[in-house]
Design a protein around this nucleic acid. Sequence first.
DNA 1: TCTACTTTTTCCACTCAGAGGACAAAGAAG
DNA 2: CTTCTTTGTCCTCTGAGTGGAAAAAGTAGA
Lengths: 396, 396
Amino acid sequence: MRRMTARPANAHQARLLTLLRDGGPNSRAQLGDQVDLSRSKLAVEVDRLPETGLVVADGLAASRGGRRSHNIRLNPELRFLGVDIGATSVDVAVTNAELETLGHLNQPMDVREGPVAVFEQVLAMAAKLRASGLAEGFDGAGIGVPGPVRFPEGIPVAPPIMPGWDGFPVREALSQELGCPVMVDNDVNLMAMGEQHAGVARTVADFLCVKIGTGIGCGIVVGGEVYRGTTGSAGDIGHIQAVPDGRPCACGNRGCLEAHFSGAALARDAVEAAQQGLSAELASRLETNGGLTAVDVAAAASAGDATALDLIREGGNRTGQVIAGLVSFFNPGLVVIGGGVTGLGHTLLAAIRTQVYRQSLPLATGNLPIVLGELGPTAGVIGGARLISDHLFSPA
Amino acid sequence: MRRMTARPANAHQARLLTLLRDGGPNSRAQLGDQVDLSRSKLAVEVDRLPETGLVVADGLAASRGGRRSHNIRLNPELRFLGVDIGATSVDVAVTNAELETLGHLNQPMDVREGPVAVFEQVLAMAAKLRASGLAEGFDGAGIGVPGPVRFPEGIPVAPPIMPGWDGFPVREALSQELGCPVMVDNDVNLMAMGEQHAGVARTVADFLCVKIGTGIGCGIVVGGEVYRGTTGSAGDIGHIQAVPDGRPCACGNRGCLEAHFSGAALARDAVEAAQQGLSAELASRLETNGGLTAVDVAAAASAGDATALDLIREGGNRTGQVIAGLVSFFNPGLVVIGGGVTGLGHTLLAAIRTQVYRQSLPLATGNLPIVLGELGPTAGVIGGARLISDHLFSPA
DNA sequence: TCTACTTTTTCCACTCAGAGGACAAAGAAG
DNA sequence: CTTCTTTGTCCTCTGAGTGGAAAAAGTAGA
């Protein structure tokens, strides 16, 4: 039996909830230092907070030189589910209400199998996490899918790499199955929210989060809020033209960034190079595994293989050129690089940095850090938990 | 002697002021229909509004079937000054508090002469407008400059085409000279605000406003608010690489959009074409005027000159490619094209549209209008008036 | 142990924004 | 001249929130 939780009654309670989420257990007095409310008003709101089921008392705090204060904290039994559906694998994690990961599962999986098959898998993984004692049930879930989403309804729209998902009511269906509130968003937005909450972007209001996986996307954060665009497709930078008259892309155009550099493109290029005998390292790996992925290229590169390094550098240059344009346009305070190819590490990062710092104007790049994401594969699931907690911790 | 005006005391008054600005004179009853306040509260706020000096009574309204209501309106004596400093000319206009243009002057002028010379000119133009009886004095001024601005302080920063302006305290200096509040912003942002207030973008929350003049810039509006970026240089798209290893640009790089298409680049290309004997039309104009500008190219094009048309088409293609990338990234609800080259009209627009619709994904372009600005050279000055009115009509 | 000082919490009186009803004022329609 | 509608004013009531006083629960030194 699932406990029922209620949304906060007003903006004050919402603010207190986020303070408890981001700062952990806290005394009433300390909360008072952080919000701008009179003692009396604070007492009233704090007293009412447990009625929502989201907050519980937590004993006495240490003395600060006088009477000891009462601690409160978010209900430690609350559980959020973060789901990050990638093109070729799915991550599912359980967090507590403070968005700390308690358990994390990853499984290979092809999104093209369609929503029904994928969610069967996701639900099985969620059940497994529950069976291992991490949760009795879920109080909310945040789902990331690799394509544009009509955000208010939580429905994917015209996702190029996910045929069969167009119009599928993800939010409603999963809410039914899980018996809890669900929010759905593009996976890059979730990654951005994850890095914002617990990663490198904690203190930046305007930043970009470029995710290079099977495809390429970009989370856009404006004033601390994710920007999704008019139809929910903002950040879809994989099909920006990077090479005039370049390679044909699945979208029908030529020279798209994604056709020249992405997990898929990199793997294809590596196979080609191996077959042409350009790299003994890659050729032997191809023979051993029967195929190559970005991971193989990363390994070959760190073994010093020149061809692998060239592939990474060239891809980084292409990506860097596109990012340079976005930096000129958007003037962010930070650029985060993440996704599956993060394993390519500093070779990739150096190539991207070179292009951006060379091509964008000094005013935009002067104080612009370009860094790898801190959270790796957990960014997405933490972002999912963050998404649903933002929803549940806001007034109804 | 200038009257003193005060800022509204609270958000309700601010809301009423913008309603009066955007909807003109209005009866108390009609205002009541538009705001969500009880009659008593509304009466209190409306009664206090004249204390600010911004609002005056305006007789009785027509009956709506019962007792006639009292009209109020923004003080008809209020005057805002809108100043749009371009690279090669300056526009100065006077508006009333409803942001209607009462008088408008334009003069050629080179920004490179520096802020002192330019503002001497601007003040002379403002004095001329005042002398012609349009204003006794100014209650506020909004200034647009062709480069990035540290917005809160109103100080240009590192403007590439305006040497000598870096760090000049425009806001403070002009506030002194004019004796009224002043706000300063990038000229493309002003154009965006102008088109938002009185032009094609009245109903759109997220849009881009591309201004092609001597240089190229882009105003970015997110959720109805201008987005300025971390250092105020957002929208600086003139130096995005449009042509790999293309022409050298003043910024030190090669292939910048601005180096390939802008008022300046177009004029240069036209001269070159004329000298090479590619176009009799352009050659004769070159001989007559001793030089060519975008206006000549526009005239030649509408006379059917093939070379001129080619120049415009190629420029449009370049610009369209860059815009296509921005559309994929930003997913706007509208793209406005404006600036000095608007005279190139539909040839340019068609080229841009072709590229954008071809290169961006259907989800982003499906319902995306790409249109010419409606206000032409008045967009900037109206935007300036809008900028200062937003400031004056918000609680202090 | 006792005393003086701090910090936290509760209690209470007070202010203020705002809502909404009653009613007066002003006009329309017959 | 009467009846109905709309508009504006007045007055009371409510609920959010503030800030002071005092109680509760500590610490630290004599």
